[in-house]
Amino acid sequence: MENSPNYLDPRTLASVQGLELRARLIVEGYVAGVHKSPYHGFSIEFAEHREYVPGDDLRHVDWKVFGKTDKFYLKQYEDETNLVCHLLLDTSESMRYQSALAPLSKLEYAKCAAAALAYLILQQQDSVGLATFDREIRALVRPSSHSAHLKQLLHVMEESVPQRKTATGPIFHDLAERLKKRGVVVVLSDLFDNVASLVAGLKHFRHRRHEVIVLQILDPAELEFPFERTTLFKGLEQLPEVLTDPRSLRQAYLAEFEKFLAAVRSGCRNNRIDYVQIRTDQSLDVALSSYLASRMTRMQ
C-alpha cells in the first residue's frame, strides 16, 4: 500500500479520469489511511454478508459462518438509514477558477469531494442527495441510500457547467424549505457572495434542524495573491475588470480577503455551523474527515 499512489492528493487525482473512479479511490485511500472501516451498519435486521477487511469491527464478524466456511464474514443489516446527507454543490462561474498553483479547479475539486462523500455515505447505507446551484437551483437529486443512486449523482455532477453568478442566500432559503428530511447539509462552495445573505441562508438550515458543514473551497492563489507582473484581472460572474500592478495591491487585497473569511467564519461559528476551509492543492481527506466527525457527533 505504501507504494501505491496517494489518491487523496489532488495532483494525483487530476490524472485520473472519471468521477466515479476518483470517488472510489479517494474513499478507499482514506479508509486505508485511517485503518478503520467506516462500513458498519446500525440496524437490527440482517441483510447480507460481506467479506471481512482489515480494520472492520470484530464485533460484527459472523462466527457461525466462520465455523462453517472457515472464512471471516461480517453481518450486514438492512434497515432504514437514520442519516440523510444533502450535498449542496456550488457550480457558479467563480468556481471555474484554477490558478497555476492548483492541479484542479475549485469546481473539479468540489466535485471530487462531493463524489467521495456520496460514495462513502452510500457505502454506509446512509442516504445522500445532491443539489447543484448558482443563482438558482440547477439540479436537485432526492436523497436515497440505494447503491445505484451513486451513478445518478455522479451523472448530475458531471453534467453541471459553471456559467452563472452565485446567489447563495436565496438558494439556501429555497433549499431549506425543500429539504424536508432532517440531516446533514454539506455545502461545497467558495462562498463568494454577500456574507450576510449567505449566513442568513445557512441559518435557515439550522433553523430546520439540519447539521450544516461548510466546506469553503479556495484556490491557493486567492489566498496568497502571488502575482508580480502588471495584470488585467477579468472578473468572473459579470464583475468588472481591473488593470493593476499586483505587487502594490497585494497587502490591501489580502486584508480585504481576510476580512471576508473572518466574516464567514464568524457567521458559521455563531450559528454552530462546521466550517472548513480547503485549498485546492490540499489533500481531499479533509472533506471526508470533517463529514465523518460531524456524523459521529450526530450519532452519539
Binding site: 467563480s94 477558477y97 475549485k106 502588471t230 495584470t231 464583475l239 481591473v242
Partner: peptide, 23 residues
C-alpha cells in the same frame, strides 16, 4: 508596461476591487 499587461480571469475580483478603491 501598462500596455504589455497579461490578462487573467479572477474569481475574487470583488475583494481586489475593494482594495483598489481604498488604495
Amino acid at each position: 508596461n501598462r500596455r504589455r499587461y497579461r490578462e487573467m480571469e479572477w474569481a475574487a475580483i470583488e475583494y481586489l476591487l475593494a482594495a483598489l478603491r481604498k488604495n
